[in-house]
Computed example of a mutant assay.
Amino acid sequence: MGMLYYGSASEPIQIEDRALAHLKVVIATKLRRNESFTLSWRHPDGDDPGRSTIWLHPSIPMRFVFDDPEPPELHGEWITAMANSANSSGGITLVPEDLETD
């Protein structure tokens, strides 16, 4: 399980390593362009039910921590889907990697 440390929050956001690797690409691209946006996700099993949203801004520090020392092979369609949602008014909604790959 990967972790995203954002701002001064003491508790990290837990995101599966593979999803976090894809999300990192989209976040880095948006922030490099000085673009702000939201990130939303459903709370993982074992946490209180519900969902959360944070505002991502280039001036707020963040750190990505992965359990696996080797980066996964990235799925371009998943990155594109996340990037498209980042460009919408709703921001990125973290969804499972269930895109069809013909």
Rank of each mutant, 00 (worst) to 15 (best):
S10C: 12
L31W: 10
V26S: 04
E35P: 00
E35M: 08
R63P: 01
Y6D: 00
G7K: 11
R33P: 01
A9M: 13
S52D: 14
I60R: 08
D45R: 15
Y6P: 07
S52M: 07
I15R: 07
F37L: 11
M62G: 02
H22A: 00
R63L: 06
S10Q: 14
P12T: 03
Q14M: 03
L23H: 10
R18D: 04
R33K: 12
I15Y: 01
E35C: 05
E11W: 15
I60F: 02
L39Q: 00
I27E: 05
K24V: 01
D48Y: 11
T29L: 00
A21R: 05
W41E: 03
L39S: 05
D17M: 03
E11H: 15
G46Y: 13
R63V: 02
A28T: 12
W55F: 15
F37A: 03
N34K: 14
A28M: 09
A28K: 13
W55S: 12
R63A: 04
D48K: 13
D45F: 13
E35K: 12
Y6Q: 06
L4Q: 02
I60G: 00
V26L: 00
R18A: 08
T29H: 13
P61H: 03
L31Y: 10
N34S: 12
V26A: 10
H57F: 05
I13G: 01
M62R: 13
A9T: 06
H43F: 07
R18G: 01
L20F: 06
R42H: 12
T29K: 15
A19G: 01
T53W: 11
S59G: 03
S10H: 14
L4H: 05
E16W: 00
T29A: 10
L56V: 10
R42N: 14
G50M: 05
N34Y: 10
E11V: 15
S10T: 14
R51M: 08
I27T: 05
D45Y: 14
R18Q: 09
E11A: 15
H43T: 06
G50N: 03
T29V: 00
K24Q: 11
Y6G: 09
G7E: 06
I27G: 02
D17P: 02
R63D: 01
A19Q: 11
Y5L: 12
P58S: 02
I15F: 07
D45H: 12
A19V: 04
P12L: 02
Q14T: 13
P49F: 11
L20E: 05
S59K: 09
A28D: 12
S10D: 13
V25L: 10
E35N: 05
S8A: 11
K30E: 13
P61R: 04
